[in-house]
């Protein structure tokens, strides 16, 4: 029939499920974050770091192959280095768990912990797109009029923050592990380096969850776009600044810094103290170098303050939950 009914009609097509709607909130949030040129630069820098890490793993892997171009090039430097490299590489080939497993575990600890600031910066830039702008524009009222609950909305925003950090942290970490081992001289590298990957996933996923929840709390503090990133960065910087004073006075003050708490969790997950002890006891020459690490530093590595870190993070998360509960309500 030529004429169609153009009047208002109820939607008769298929409805997406609740996860589809949550995905839309997360996806829109992530798109809003990625509109920022600076954030895109941070993502780029993070992946460049991942590539460099993969290149370094490739380099290390090549050193384990006696007749590789890398080994031949290094051995050309001087006769002493040639002798050292021969002895070192033959030892490493006999002890793959240490040469591959321990080395990658230690490397990924340092890469994971020292690339965390980039993610913190990225999350700070993404804060306005989480809850802040929605508070300013009353979009929460619009969301609440749709078929999504407050929990769905928050879950979607949580996934936005999680997505940002996947792009800047977990993605490059896992990518570096995969590419680094793909470029290894042997497929067994994947097996020997499995522990490092497991540790990366445990630490990465748990830290990202914690940081995402904290970010939600901070982004709900104010409806002003400039205030929430300022609060986030101020908290981070002051947390770092307080460390030297706290170390000499009230040690629990160190746990006011989320960066410090997450570092303690990293130490516990990666068992860095134990790994360094293994490396010190097993690997020639490196052991002598590691013995020169100051006792204070070794003490910190061997005994992470996990209990305090967990309690500190729990208090922060509780505060964030209270803030979100109070602020994210349709007016």
């Amino acid at each position: 029939m030529p004429l169609h009914d153009a009047h208002y009609q109820h939607w008769g097509g298929a409805h997406t499920g609740i996860w589809g709607r949550r995905w839309v909130i997360a996806q829109n949030g992530l798109s809003a974050c990625l509109r920022s040129k600076l954030l895109r630069y941070v993502v780029l820098v993070s992946w460049v770091g991942g590539l460099l890490m993969a290149a370094f793993l490739f380099f290390l892997g090549q050193l384990l192959v006696p007749d590789s171009n890398m080994t031949r090039w290094v051995m050309q430097i001087s006769p002493d280095i040639r002798a050292f490299v021969r002895m070192f590489t033959s030892w490493l080939q006999d002890h793959p768990e240490v040469s591959v497993g321990t080395t990658q575990n230690v490397l990924f600890y340092y890469y994971g912990v020292y690339s965390m600031p980039l993610s913190i910066i990225a999350l700070g830039m993404a804060l306005p797109a989480l809850i802040t702008r929605d508070l300013a524009s009353n979009a929460i009222l619009i969301y609440s009029s749709k078929a999504v609950t407050r929990g769905d909305y928050l879950l979607g925003k949580f996934c936005t923050a999680f997505g940002v950090m996947t792009l800047t942290w977990l993605g490059p970490l896992c990518g570096a592990w995969f590419v680094g081992n793909l470029l290894a001289p042997d497929w067994t590298f994947f097996w020997h380096a499995r522990i490092a990957l497991i540790h990366v996933l445990i630490f990465g996923l748990s830290s990202m969850a914690v940081l995402s929840l904290l970010a939600l709390g901070v982004s709900a503090v104010s409806s002003r776009e400039k205030s929430t990133p300022a609060l986030w960065f101020t908290w981070w910087v002051l947390g770092l600044a307080i460390q030297p004073i706290a170390l000499h006075t009230l040690q629990w003050l160190r746990h006011l810094s989320f960066g410090y708490n997450l570092k303690q969790i990293a130490l516990a997950v990666f068992h860095l103290g134990r790994e360094l002890q293994t490396a010190q006891d097993s690997i020639p020459i490196l052991g002598q170098l590691l013995r020169q690490v100051p006792p204070a530093t070794r003490a910190a590595l061997d005994h992470p303050l996990l209990g305090g870190a967990v309690m500190g993070l729990a208090v922060m998360l509780l505060t964030a939950a209270l803030i979100v509960n109070k602020r994210v309500v349709p007016e």
Partner: peptide, 28 residues
């Protein structure tokens, strides 16, 4: 022992005051 050796040079009683005042407050 590990806990005691974490701080190699302990501060005097009033040193925290100066660090709070100068390092933390005045210069940050």
């Amino acid at each position: 022992l590990l806990k005691l050796t974490e701080v190699s040079v302990p501060w005097s009683r009033t040193e925290p005051f100066y660090h709070w005042l100068i390092n933390f407050y005045f210069f940050l």
